[in-house]
């Protein structure tokens, strides 16, 4: 296969004129919904260093969102702690961010709607999420999904042991996408973000560049309904990371694999070109959807530690998977 250099790619994503208004209205609607946070200790998964909790909170459409909350025991590291939101990949369940908590973070692993434990009222299935109501931006799957991740920031802000001026976000693949959207929509609270192999950037370009799932869901849908292409293109423009990028104000780290068949690297470059914040881009030749995490993980830890200053930053986290 032959492709041009990823850095020379030009996105076909256009920013709708009412993009900001669209999201302002959604975030305003979300703000009217009480968070109603819950916190249940999970002794089975706690360790001498880390307390584990199962958490819940209300989000858009009153969907109850689940997550894991891991924080250092006060006897191991005293509060306050920087907060860290770990956002999941498309087919992954959120892992328990115990290794991040051991480093000194109060860390949430969130399960946005449709994921296990958050799927009682909304369950489009996998595959399926990417194209659920993709012809209508007002009911498209990611409208609530993005807000669910943002509300995890509110959960962290509700915790007295969390330092509200030290909150970051990190994930890869769909987690990379949610890192971008959360940093954009909660630019008031997020101090830094590390996004690997960012998905949901340049949706339509990506679907043209790959036959790997999840983007292949769009190809399948348009093979069956080719006449809906303009409507699909319009919908996803409202959810495109490239269009969220200019809203980010905090420092960002983006890393991509130059042979990523899942989230084409061209779209990672398009994302970075659209950012107005301070951003470091690390691109790994011959790496695929791993995005070079074997080499990148220490850099992610150092980047987050530089901005969030956890107490035990010399320890290491589990490698991030999308």
């Amino acid at each position: 296969m032959r492709r041009g250099p990823a850095e020379r790619h030009e996105t076909s994503t256009e920013r709708p004129e009412d993009f900001d208004a669209f999201w302002s209205a959604i975030m305003a609607e979300a703000a009217t919904i009480p968070l109603n946070p819950s916190l249940e200790p999970v002794p089975l998964r706690s360790t001498p260093e880390v307390d584990v909790y199962e958490i819940g909170y209300d989000s858009l459409d009153r969907v109850r969102i689940a997550g894991w909350y891991c924080r250092p025991r006060a006897s191991y590291l005293p509060p306050p702690y920087p907060g860290l939101l770990i956002v999941p990949g498309y087919i992954s369940e959120p892992t328990l961010p115990k290794s991040w908590a051991k480093m000194g973070y109060a860390a949430v692993g969130v399960a946005p709607r449709g994921k296990l434990r958050s799927n009682q009222r909304y369950n489009p299935g996998y595959p399926g999420l990417l194209i659920d109501n993709i012809v209508d931006r007002h009911t498209y799957a990611y409208r609530g999904f993005y807000v669910d991740a943002c509300r995890a920031v509110d959960f962290l802000l509700s915790r007295p042991e969390v330092d509200p001026v030290r909150i970051g976000v990190h994930g890869s693949s769909q987690g990379g996408a949610l890192t971008v959207t959360t940093a954009a929509l909660r630019s008031d609270a997020i101090r830094c973000g590390a996004a690997g192999a960012p998905y949901l950037c340049g949706f339509m370009d990506a679907a043209e560049l790959t036959h790997s799932y999840p983007y292949e869901e769009i190809n399948e849908y348009l093979r069956l309904h080719p006449e809906r292409e303009p409507t699909v293109r319009l919908t996803v423009a409202y959810f495109d990371g490239v269009n969220f990028a200019p809203m980010i104000r905090c420092p960002m780290l983006v890393y991509v694999g130059l042979a990523d068949d899942v989230c084409p690297p061209e779209t990672g470059y398009d994302l970075v070109k659209a950012m107005r914040c301070s951003v470091d881009l690390h691109a790994y030749p011959r790496c695929a959807h791993d995005a070079g995490v074997y080499w990148e993980m220490p850099k992610i830890e150092a980047f987050l530690a530089e901005h969030l200053r956890p107490a035990a930053y010399t320890l290491h986290a589990e490698p991030t998977v999308g």
Binding site: R2, A259, A288, D290
Partner: peptide
Amino acid sequence: HEGGTDHDWIDAWMARHLGVDLRPRVW
């Protein structure tokens, strides 16, 4: 640990054993 390199090597191994064409993804 280069995901593309490793994928293509493994794909080629299976393809050789099953008698089909290789389909490398590193472009």
